[in-house]
Design a protein around this nucleic acid. Sequence first.
DNA 1: CGTACTCTTGACTCTAATCAAAGTTGGTGG
DNA 2: CCACCAACTTTGATTAGAGTCAAGAGTACG
Lengths: 224, 224
Amino acid sequence: MLSTYTATLVHVRPPQMPAGAMPQARATASTRLSIERDAEIVAQGDPAEYCYRVVSGCVRTLRLLEDGRRQIREFLLPGDIFGWESLDEHDFTAEAVTAVTVERFSFGMMTDRNRQDGALSSEISLRLAAQIRRAGQHVVLLGRKTASERIATFLMDMAQRLPGGSGGTIGLPMNRVDIADYLGLTIETVCRRLMELRRNGTIAITKSRIAILRPGALASTCCD
Amino acid sequence: MLSTYTATLVHVRPPQMPAGAMPQARATASTRLSIERDAEIVAQGDPAEYCYRVVSGCVRTLRLLEDGRRQIREFLLPGDIFGWESLDEHDFTAEAVTAVTVERFSFGMMTDRNRQDGALSSEISLRLAAQIRRAGQHVVLLGRKTASERIATFLMDMAQRLPGGSGGTIGLPMNRVDIADYLGLTIETVCRRLMELRRNGTIAITKSRIAILRPGALASTCCD
DNA sequence: CGTACTCTTGACTCTAATCAAAGTTGGTGG
DNA sequence: CCACCAACTTTGATTAGAGTCAAGAGTACG
C-alpha cells in the first residue's frame, strides 16, 4: 500500500474538519497525499492504521470476489471519509477514480483511546462500524452473487450467528418469503436452490431445520 | 408505532451491556417490550426517539418500495442493536420475525448531548450513521430495483452530490465499467439504459457530461 | 379432519448477461 | 496539425438465469 504510486507528503494540521472531530487532533498530524488515477489508496487486508478524507477528486471503494467479479461499494467525493469502520484490517480496496488528494489520519490511537474509555461513543462506534462491514458484505452478495451463492452465504452466516448453529444444524426463525426478500430473490428461487443443495447432499431439510452435512461444499459455494 | 400489539412494559436499568456503553445510563431508564410475531416495532418515518437491543427472538429491518417490492436489510438476533444510525427519523421498518423481546432506550438525549460536545465520537458516529443509511439505500437498489431504476437513482444521486450537478448537468468522474460495478449490472446494460433515457428525452449525453432535461421523469423512474 | 398457510414443483417468459463487432474519444508522436 | 493507437462506449444477436404464473404437496392448528 502507498508504495507503487506518486505520493506527495505534507504534514499538516487537519483542515476544514472541526478540530474536535478528529482523533487526538492536537497530538496527531495528518498527511496529505496526492494519488494518480487508478492507483490504490487502501488494499483489502491492509492493517487498519489510517482513515482518510477525500480533499479533491473521486475515490471508489470495492471488493473483488475470487473469480474477479467486482462490486463497488461507494463513490466518495470531496468531504467524504472512509476507513473509519475498519477494525483490525480494511475489508475493502480503495482506488482513485480520478487524480485524487486525500488527507490521511492515524487511526490506531483513536481506537485504543476509545476502547479504554469504554465510553458511549466507543461502544456505539464499534457497533455502527460492524453494521457497515456487514452491509458491505450484503452489497457484494446482492450486486454480484448468483442465487446459489446467496443461499450458501446466507446459510453459512446463519449457522455462525444462530445459537447451536455451529453444531451443523440450524433452526431458521424466518420463512422463505423473508429469506427471499433478504437475498433479493423470489421465494421460488430460494426453494429451488435449497432443494438443489439437498439433492447434492450438502444440506438436509426437516421442517424448518436445516442440517449442514458438508460444510466444505457449502463454504466453497459462497465464493468470496 | 407500538400501538397495535401486546407490549409488556418494565422499567429497568440496562442489563448486560456495560453501563458506560449506554447513553446517559445512569439518568435514562430502559424499557423492555414483548412483541408478538409479525408486529411492527419501528415504522419507517417514525421520529428517531428510541433505539433498541434484541433480547430474544428475531427481528427484521426492511424497506418497501412504492409498488410493494420489499427488501430486508438485516436479520437481528439477541444482542444485536438497531436504530442507532437514524438521524431525525427512522428510514426503515422493524418487525418481529418471531415473538420478540427488545430493550428500548431513549435516543434523542444522546444525540443532543453528542452534538453539543462536538466530540470525536460524535462526529465519527454521525458519519458512520450516514454511511449506514446510504448502504441501506444501496441494498434496496441492488436487491429490488430494475436496471432502469438503478440508472435513474444513480443519476439523481450524482446530480445531488457532484458540484454543479443540481444545475442539471453533471460531469461523471467515473467510466461505464465503474458505474456497472457499482449498480450490480454489466457495462452493456448501463449503456443501453442510458441510451434509452436519451432516446425518450430525459437526459442528453455529450462526451462524459450528462444533462438532465426532465428531472421529473428521472425522479419518477427511481421508484422509492 | 378440515382449513389456511407455507413450501415445493412445473411450464413458460423476460430481463439482463454474454459474446461479438463496430463506432468514438482522447492522447501521442511524427 | 494530423494520423494512429489504445481505451472506452455503443449497438446487435443470442443465451441463460431468475421471475412469473399456476398448481400441487406438506404442515400447523383449531
